[in-house]
Amino acid sequence: MISEIVKAKLTPEAIEKSVEVQKEVNRRKGEQSRFFQLQVEKARYEADIARRRYMNVDPDNRLVSLELESAWNLRLAQLLDTEKQYEDELKRTRRRQIGNWKQKSLGWLKTSIKYGIILSCRQRIRNGLYVI
């Protein structure tokens, strides 16, 4: 009974859709990662500009020097925050990504069902169901 339900749900089309959805999810994660990379680059650039302004100020002009120093410190704090967010996002992304072995397992499962091959390995079925 359970095997009939699994056979009914695990059609080659359903497995193909699962693979397509996973590819789309991975693509979007790549875009999100690129967004965080750009944010870090922007924060580094702004911190570097603030540092150069501070270094180029006349030391006799203490008020301007103090203001530029505080701006530089603010940009450095923003840079640290942005880098931490990027690292946290990388850790989350690594945990959620599907491995190549799972995609290969889904491909094998799809082929097996399509050609009526009896599945003898419960591990492969379980891996396929994990993604679907």
Rank of each mutant, 00 (worst) to 15 (best):
M1N: 06
I2K: 09
I2Q: 08
S3N: 09
E4Q: 11
E4F: 15
K7S: 08
K7V: 01
K7R: 13
A8F: 09
K9A: 06
K9I: 02
T11S: 03
T11R: 01
P12T: 00
P12Q: 00
A14Y: 05
I15N: 00
I15R: 00
E16D: 10
K17M: 10
V19E: 03
V19A: 04
V19I: 14
E20M: 15
Q22F: 05
V25K: 07
N26G: 07
R27T: 05
R27I: 04
R27M: 04
R27F: 15
R28W: 07
R28E: 08
K29Q: 10
G30P: 02
E31D: 09
Q32W: 06
Q32H: 06
S33P: 02
F35D: 13
F35T: 11
F36P: 00
Q37N: 11
L38K: 12
L38M: 11
L38Q: 12
V40C: 04
V40S: 03
E41D: 09
K42A: 08
K42T: 07
A43T: 01
A43W: 05
R44V: 02
R44D: 06
R44L: 07
Y45L: 12
Y45W: 10
Y45S: 11
I49Q: 09
R52C: 02
R52W: 04
R53G: 07
R53W: 05
Y54N: 05
Y54I: 01
N56A: 14
N56I: 03
V57N: 04
D58A: 07
D60N: 14
N61I: 07
R62V: 12
R62F: 10
V64H: 10
V64L: 13
E67R: 13
L68R: 04
E69P: 05
E69S: 10
E69K: 15
E69A: 08
S70M: 15
A71Y: 05
A71K: 08
W72V: 02
W72F: 15
W72M: 15
R75H: 10
L76H: 11
L76F: 11
Q78K: 10
L79T: 01
L79A: 02
L79V: 00
L80N: 14
L80W: 10
D81C: 09
E83A: 03
E83W: 06
E83K: 04
E83G: 00
Q85F: 09
Y86L: 02
E87W: 08
E89D: 08
L90K: 06
K91D: 03
K91V: 07
R92L: 03
T93W: 04
R95C: 04
R96F: 08
R96Q: 11
R96G: 03
R96E: 12
I98M: 06
I98N: 02
I98A: 03
G99A: 11
K102E: 12
K102Y: 15
K102L: 12
K102S: 11
Q103C: 11
Q103T: 09
S105L: 05
S105W: 06
L106D: 00
L109G: 00
L109Q: 00
K110H: 01
K110M: 06
S112L: 01
I113T: 02
K114Y: 05
K114N: 06
K114R: 08
Y115N: 11
Y115A: 03
Y115M: 05
Y115D: 09
C121I: 14
R122F: 08
Q123V: 10
I125A: 10
I125N: 01
I125M: 13
N127M: 15
N127Y: 15
G128C: 01
G128Q: 01
G128F: 03
Y130L: 13
V131L: 05
V131W: 01
I132T: 04
